[in-house]
Amino acid sequence: MAKIIVVTSGKGGVGKTTTSAAISSGLALQGHKTVVVDFDIGLRNLDIIMGCERRVVYDFINVINGEASLNQALIKDKRVPQLFILPASQTRDKDALSMEGVEKVLNDLSAEFDFIVCDSPAGIETGALMAMYYADHAIVVTNPEVSSVRDSDRILGILASKTKRAIENRPPVQEHLLLTRYDPERVEKGEMLSVEDVKEILAIPLIGVIPESKAVLKASNTGTPVILDEASDAGIAYQDAIARFLGESRPMRFISTERKGILRRLFGKNKEDALV
């Protein structure tokens, strides 16, 4: 039985697809057979972030409608063994996702994979509700910004009442806060909500802090999950988040300006010493 993880946020543009790509690649790199499913029907984008947009033949809706088999629709990643992508459909029919269809596909995937990562669309419409309905874990992607934090809280309310686990009175979906686009310099200046502020407001366990990073745009330009840019700050932060998800405890990095660059700190200090 696979563990089902939904990557969700309510608000758009906070980094759900970037996170889905990074988390699924990270789990596969750790040796877990993983599939990442794009639930954003009509606005397919996971494929382009993962760099497999030209290999899409069949999609999620084709599988639901029985027009293709799961194996025909799954795209095997060329860089990471054990990683597969199920792209969304470009149909404009918003009722294309049926509850029974989604359940059948997830059940079939569950027999073959260790992890199923569901990339949720923004909003709280059908696609978003379907993406979270069968989840065991939810990674709530949040920016340190008022509208994103408020929407995340709304999503937490829905996770606690509208998911299968909630409806069947089983143990609740495990929630994990992932703070993205974090800028410790602005936090220090009092221009941005801090990790502690967001943690206090949302009151769920923190799984990682991804710093605002040029590596993210560079990665999406080339269709490479940012976690594969192993030297980048965002890549390292995602690797840490994966390790924490798998039960390891690691200190948070990139949350204070002092820790930002060891080199800069070393050289910076020397300079100051010289001046004294």
């Binding site: 910004e145 008022v146 934090v149 408020r150 936090v187 200046k189 009092g190 221009e191 941005m192 909500l193 801090s194 502020d197 206090e200 407001i201």
Partner: peptide, 10 residues
Amino acid sequence: STASVAKERL
């Protein structure tokens, strides 16, 4: 700071 205003409003 504006961050503390944000926190309070939230």
